[in-house]
Simulated assay, not measured.
Amino acid sequence: MFISVFQEKWKDLPKILQKRYSNRAYSDDIVTVDGKLDVYCSWLIRLLKPFLKIFNVLVPYQGKNIPVSVSFVSKSDSEILYFNRTFSFPDKKPYRFYSRMVRLKGDDVIEFMRFNIGWRMRCFYDGKKVVLQHRGYVWKFFGLLIPLPINLLIGKGYAEEEAISDNEFRMYFEIRHRLFGKVYGYGGNFTIKEQEI
C-alpha cells in the first residue's frame, strides 16, 4: 500500500522505514513492531475518557515506558491496512486499540477507527522522516466522507516516524488544540519483531 503512497520517494526511505511500511495491498503481509512509549493525556482527554473508550479512538491512560506492540496486517482480499495495537500499562488489563488505514489517492490517506470515524492526513517522506499531516476528521456514511469539526473539540493530529538505525525507529504522535496546546501524545522507539512478507 505505502509504495503507492510514497511513490518515487519510496527508494529514499531508510531500510528500517521500508520494513515498517512494507505491507502490500491484497496480500497476507504482517509486520509486527515492539517498543516502549511515553503516553500523555491532558485534563481534556481524561474528561473525554468514557467517549474515547466507546469510540476506541485513543488510549485513555498515561504513563512512562509503556510496552507497546503493533501489528500491521494486510488481507488478500483488500487494500486496507489494519493496525492492531496493544498497550501494556502496569496494573491494568492490556488496552487494545484497533484501526484501519485506506489510501484515497496519492499521499491522501485516512485512518478509520470504530463507527467509521476517520483521521484524514497527508502521508509523505520529507527526506528525513515520514510525516502524517492533519487534513481533518471525517465520518464515512454509506460511502460518503462527511467532514467532522472534531478539531474544534480536541484539536489537530500530527505524527512522524524517523529512522534511528537499520533496526530501530522513533515515532511521535500528538493532538494539539489551538487554545489548550498539546492535549494528547505519545512517543518512543520501536524495533521490528516480525516481518511476514
Score class of each variant (00 low, 15 high):
Gly127Cys: 07
Ile30Ala: 09
Leu179Glu: 13
Leu153Asp: 11
Cys123Trp: 03
Val138Phe: 09
Phe112Met: 10
Tyr137Thr: 03
Gly106Leu: 13
Lys75Val: 08
Asp126Val: 08
Leu17Asn: 01
Tyr137Asn: 02
Thr86Val: 13
Gly185Val: 01
Pro14Lys: 01
Glu8Gln: 13
Gly106Trp: 08
Ile150Asn: 00
Arg176Ser: 15
Leu153Ile: 15
Gly157Phe: 02
Gly106Tyr: 09
Gly157Cys: 13
Arg20Met: 04
Phe89Cys: 01
Leu152Trp: 10
Tyr26Ala: 02
Val33Cys: 10
Phe112Ile: 09
Phe55Gln: 10
Asp107Thr: 10
Tyr61Thr: 00
Gly106Arg: 11
Leu44Cys: 13
Asp12Arg: 13
Gly143Asp: 10
Ile16Thr: 00
Lys182Leu: 08
Asp29Arg: 07
Leu179Phe: 12
Leu144Phe: 14
Thr32Ala: 10
Gly106His: 11
Leu179Asp: 11
Lys49Trp: 09
Phe6Arg: 01
Val131Trp: 05
Gln7Pro: 04
Glu111Asp: 15
His134Leu: 05
Phe2Gly: 00
Phe141Arg: 15
Tyr95Leu: 02
Leu179Tyr: 14
Ile16Met: 00
Asn84Thr: 09
Asp126Pro: 09
Glu168Val: 11
Trp43Tyr: 14
Asp28Val: 07
Leu104Gly: 14
Leu13Lys: 00
Ile66Lys: 00
Leu153Asn: 12
Lys75Ser: 09
Tyr26Gly: 05
Phe89Ala: 01
Met113Leu: 14
Gly187Arg: 01
Thr191Met: 07
Gly35Tyr: 05
Ile146Leu: 15
Phe2Ala: 02
Ile30Asp: 07
Val33Lys: 01
Lys64Trp: 11
Arg46Asp: 12
Cys41His: 12
Glu161Trp: 04
Tyr98Ile: 08
Glu160Ala: 09
Lys11His: 10
Asn151Arg: 15
Met113Gln: 11
Phe6Ile: 02
Ile117Leu: 12
